[in-house]
């Protein structure tokens, strides 16, 4: 009996040691993107694992944030979303704003915004508890992640290299997500694999 107990606790300890660092592991380029489960604005369940074999873009979103507005009111973001969709990339928009905070909305409100801004992502994930956001350590809106068909992070960071709220900066900017996607589609490695994101803080 005692021997079994010792064995069990040893196994449990080993399991803990094995799991603990994995749980604490930060999202990093080249490492596995953590799987998540969330409901989208049309009520469908969404997981990362269901898109295994496809390129996936995660985009943190807050309709009230000036930096998000910069890229949506200029059609910059939607254009990229349409291009990505054409190439079979799954684009998931994520709202991690807590209830009562900026950017939070009911599914109806979110769908209305999708229609108004002609948002061309595959779905908008509702993450009011910030679970997906914290899992990915999403810091800003927008904060972009590109995940490869094997489920590994290929790019994470800023949407472009002009960290301002001014849409006038878009034409001269280099869209880092587009660069990463282009490289990915052409089968080249993604160069600037991690950058510092910019924007409003995610309203957890």
């Amino acid at each position: 009996m005692i021997r079994t107990k010792i064995l069990m606790s040893a196994l449990a300890l080993a399991a803990l040691l094995y799991i603990a660092p994995n749980a604490a592991q930060a999202v990093a380029v080249g490492s596995a993107a953590p799987d998540f489960q969330a409901t989208d604005s049309s009520g469908k369940a969404q997981t990362l694992s269901q898109y295994k074999g496809k390129w996936v873009v995660l985009e943190w979103f807050n309709e009230g944030c000036p930096y998000v507005k910069k890229h949506y009111e200029s059609d910059n973001m939607q254009k990229l979303q349409r291009e990505a969709a054409k190439q079979g990339v799954v684009w998931l928009t994520v709202i991690s704003s807590a209830p009562g905070k900026q950017g939070h909305g009911t599914p109806e409100q979110v769908n209305a915004k999708r229609a108004e801004w002609k948002i061309a992502s595959a779905a908008t994930l509702l993450d009011p508890e910030g679970k997906v956001g914290r899992l990915y350590e999403a810091k800003t809106t927008p904060h972009m992640f590109l995940i490869d068909p094997q489920g590994k992070v290929a790019y994470m960071g800023a949407i472009d290299d002009r960290p301002t709220s001014d849409p006038a900066d878009i034409p001269a900017s280099k869209n880092l997500v587009k660069v990463a996607l282009d490289a990915a589609m052409a089968g080249r490695p993604v160069a600037a694999a991690a950058t510092v994101p910019y924007g409003c803080s995610v309203k957890y």
Partner: peptide, 10 residues
């Protein structure tokens, strides 16, 4: 300047 409390306004 970007001024923020909970929300941010440039």
């Amino acid at each position: 300047w970007l001024v923020c409390k909970e929300d941010c306004i440039p």
